[in-house]
């Protein structure tokens, strides 16, 4: 029992580290994934013994399960914000990324993203794309949503 608790400690540490990483990479995460991540971080900040006791009645196996769950959350977050290269991705890939980011009319917007290539690597604020897309009078926040799914 005591040995199992010691095994759980490094796992909890790893979960804490992954939770911190996911927070740093999160800018385009949805509200759902954000809530899940904060739950995971809450779980990992509890001392190991009480975490296993509170959530599972104190069995080491259950504690390990809790850790595994909290480490899986950052992976889900990473897939939710999967970015595609605006300069090299196909239109279908861009459309899929925009749909994943919740952009309305992703098909039409992906055509515009492809049309105005290339996007300079030193244009950190996506000025070129923002300028071109603004001509279409999009709803507030749509351009930011589009850019959240793109990288260079």
């Amino acid at each position: 029992m005591r040995v199992n608790s010691w095994l759980a400690l490094p796992l909890l540490g790893a979960a804490l580290a992954l939770g911190a990483c996911s927070g740093a990479e999160e800018p385009a995460a949805t509200a759902t994934t954000r809530a899940s991540t904060s739950t995971a971080q809450r779980t990992t900040t509890v001392p190991a013994a009480s975490a296993s006791t509170a959530s599972t009645g104190g069995t080491p196996k259950a504690a390990a399960t809790s850790v595994a769950t909290s480490t899986a959350v950052p992976a889900a977050t990473a897939s939710a914000v999967r970015k595609v290269n605006a300069n090299t991705a196909t239109r279908a890939e861009i459309q899929a990324a925009l749909e994943a980011a919740g952009v309305p009319n992703a098909s039409n917007w992906s055509r515009e993203v492809v049309e105005y290539r290339p996007y300079p690597a030193d244009d950190a604020n996506w000025t070129k794309l923002r300028t071109e897309l603004a001509k279409y009078n999009p709803a507030p926040g749509v351009v930011d949503q589009i850019i959240s799914a793109l990288e260079k």
């Binding site: 009319n105 279409y136 999009p138 709803a139």
Partner: peptide, 11 residues
């Protein structure tokens, strides 16, 4: 024409 659904006034 293709830009119609992208415009917030017509979406």
């Amino acid at each position: 024409y293709q830009a119609g659904p992208l415009d917030q006034r017509f979406s």
